[in-house]
């Protein structure tokens, strides 16, 4: 017999309820194997609030119409920092399945330009990752195509950081030697993204609720919006999703964060499954386009 591992401490039944409440309100799902972390984060918030039990804390979340506590809890759970190549299965699916489909759709038209929008790009790791992937396809799949990445965020400080393109620590933890050597140069303890990647990414400050500004984001082939919608209430989410729908080409794809869902939010999009990833396509996209 192998030595017995210590069993995890039992879960408080209210954690599942809190999980369900978060899913309903924020659209992000914490699987069973994440519930201990969720309980831990709830207990941390309870300590700060002086809540005596998870039941009391659950009630606080339930009546939190301003969503201030759910936002604080989400901030405690989701890692504030982002990194390059954060969701590899999503990126693989984008490169192996989505890009070829978009190329196929565009080949029927006069325009051969692929436009990607990283909505809520934070400090730029995501749009630069997307730009690197496109560059990797430049000699092959995209040889007759031009492409760019629109990267938007509300936070001017994050955008400033992104434009500089200087990264270290957590940001580069998933960076392989291949990408590091090809697209970065050393700058002291940090890494500087190469100018040819920077040239593909256009950073701008955009409020996702600003209809006038959003109407300028047109003809996108791919929108990536990770862990942004979870902070909005249902009505706000619906508004943003409508904007995304208008911005996206008929053959386009919307990617959300890992375990994020649009269930109950939009009839304008349909869920599709890609290998170890999910995405949304327009509901009026031709049926049978899958496979």
């Amino acid at each position: 017999m192998s030595p017995r591992m210590n069993p995890m401490p039992p879960l408080n039944p209210y954690v599942s309820r809190i999980r369900d409440l978060i899913y309903q309100e924020a659209g992000i799902f914490y699987a069973e194997n994440k519930l201990h972390t969720l309980q831990d984060r709830c207990e941390k918030r309870m300590g700060e609030l002086g809540s005596l039990s998870l039941q009391t804390y659950y009630e606080q979340l339930r009546v939190d119409t301003a969503r201030s506590e759910i936002t604080s809890l989400l901030n405690n759970i989701t890692v504030g920092e982002t990194c390059f190549f954060r969701n590899q299965p999503q990126l693989d699916a984008l490169r192996r399945i989505v890009l070829p489909r978009i190329v196929q759709a565009q080949e029927k038209t006069a325009v051969h330009k692929i436009r990607i929008w990283s909505a809520g790009c934070s400090t730029g790791e995501e749009p630069y990752t997307l730009a690197m992937l496109m560059l990797e396809e430049k000699a092959g799949l995209l040889k007759d195509f031009s492409f760019d990445v629109q990267a938007t965020d509300l936070n001017e400080l994050s955008l400033e950081h992104a434009r500089k393109g200087l990264y270290g620590g957590y940001s580069v933890r998933n960076l392989t030697t291949f990408f590091r050597q090809k697209y970065f140069t050393s700058a002291g303890d940090s890494l500087q993204i190469s100018p040819r990647v920077q040239a593909l990414v256009n950073f701008s400050r955009v409020n996702l609720f600003d209809s006038a500004r959003m109407s300028l984001m047109k003809a996108m082939d791919i929108i990536v919006c990770c862990n942004v919608l979870i902070y909005f209430n249902s009505a706000s989410k619906k508004t943003v999703i409508q904007h995304f729908c208008s911005s996206l080409q008929k053959h386009g794809y919307l990617f959300l964060g890992h375990s994020e869902s649009l269930y109950g939010i939009s009839d304008e999009f349909r869920l599709v499954h890609l290998p170890s990833a999910t995405a949304y396509v327009k509901a009026d996209r031709e049926q049978g386009a899958s496979r």
């Binding site: 192996r96 399945i97 489909r101 349909r270 869920l271 599709v272 499954h273 890609l274 290998p275 170890s276 396509v281 049926q287 049978g288 386009a289 899958s290 496979r291």
Partner: peptide, 10 residues
């Protein structure tokens, strides 16, 4: 990996 896209509703 099976490289394909699936719409479960279809």
């Amino acid at each position: 990996t099976e490289v394909r896209e699936i719409d479960f509703l279809e």
